[in-house]
């Protein structure tokens, strides 16, 4: 039965006029999992979330949340999901407890439980002592935690977070993800979009979106294993010239500069000595060359690269 799946999306598509914002994406999220939707701005992440929350209707395809169809059983879906949008949609001229109280009443929390539920949420969000403070005076990290608290006021089993950590400092980001983990531990499923690759490591499953399509779907380790090629980190003098030279080699898939260090993705058979030889022949002084394990960012860049090449070929054909 599909009831074990928190989210099930099949060939989900959304068009805005001629523009296809989301192109036939399919995935599902098992109960209690944290699903990370990765991709650059404009890849279609927010549109996907909005379709799943019932804010936008899909142009074609279908999606269900906990077995309820998002376009037909909207009322059932709404009671079971929490949604935190990119902009932390809080009322700035309302206080912390007034914001929580507003959502608690909208979601129809029994009157006698409203007070205790709000107290509980304030504790979860670590906002004790700030109940009376106006939201506009809160720092970014606190607003973020308040937005999350508002989104889960009715204890939804499924939570959608659209770039929850945008504009929040690293320490607070980590604390935020710990809150998410705690909730997932209690059986709550989470779908979060992000473009911080380090955050993606917190997810059980990752979907990578690029140009409206889902180009990869797997757990972080498998994604790294699946990555074709071997990755080298090259620390040398004249990194700019070295980048150009390496890029022209037929066995090099991609070169990405991380500051002065070059990350070079080679096809499988390449050996470290080969790189050393090429650079030395071009009179470039090498400080260090070593093979490294790919990060999710490398995986993403390589996938995007493949995708672009396919795209170019398709256009030529």
């Amino acid at each position: 039965m599909s009831s074990e799946k928190s989210v099930q999306a099949t060939q989900l598509t959304r068009k805005f006029g001629d523009f296809i914002a989301v192109d036939q994406i399919s995935f599902d999220i098992p109960k209690g999992e944290i699903f990370g939707l990765l991709g650059p701005n404009g890849a279609g992440k927010t549109t996907t979330i909005r379709m799943l929350c019932g804010i936008l209707t899909p142009s074609s395809g279908a999606a269900s949340i906990l077995g309820f169809d998002v376009s037909k059983q909207t009322e059932e879906v709404k009671q079971r999901i929490g949604y935190m949008s990119q902009k932390f949609s809080l009322y700035n001229d309302l206080s912390v407890s007034e914001n929580l109280n507003f959502y608690a009443n909208l979601y129809g929390i029994p009157r006698e439980k409203v007070k205790s539920r709000i107290a509980e949420l304030i504790e979860i969000a670590g906002l004790q002592g700030h109940e009376k403070q106006l939201t506009r005076n809160l720092s970014g990290a606190w607003r973020q935690r308040l937005a999350l608290a508002c989104a889960i006021v009715h204890e939804p089993p499924m939570i959608f977070l659209d770039e929850p950590t945008a504009g929040v400092d690293p320490v607070s980001r980590r604390e935020f993800w710990e809150m998410i983990y705690t909730m997932a531990g209690r059986g709550v499923s989470v779908l979060a979009t992000t473009h911080y690759m380090d955050e993606a490591e917190f997810c059980n499953v990752i979907g990578m979106m690029y140009r409206s399509r889902l180009i990869a779907l797997n757990d972080p380790d498998s994604l790294k294993d699946e990555m074709r090629g071997v990755l080298f980190e090259v620390d040398c003098h004249e990194p700019g010239r070295a980048e150009k030279i390496l890029r022209d080699l037929p066995t090099v898939q991609d070169v990405v500069a991380h500051g002065v260090i070059l990350r070079v993705l080679m096809t499988d058979k390449t050996k470290k000595v080969f790189l050393e030889k090429v650079l030395t022949e071009n009179e470039i002084v090498i400080d260090r060359i070593e093979r490294v394990l790919p990060t999710l960012e490398d995986v993403f860049v390589s996938l995007v690269d493949q995708e672009n090449r396919l795209h170019v070929r398709a256009e030529i054909d």
């Binding site: 709404k78 949008s85 949609s89 809080l90």
Partner: peptide
Amino acid sequence: EQGTLEQLIVTPV
């Protein structure tokens, strides 16, 4: 404009 309408859409109101 503030984006709070988006939040209201997902509530049962």
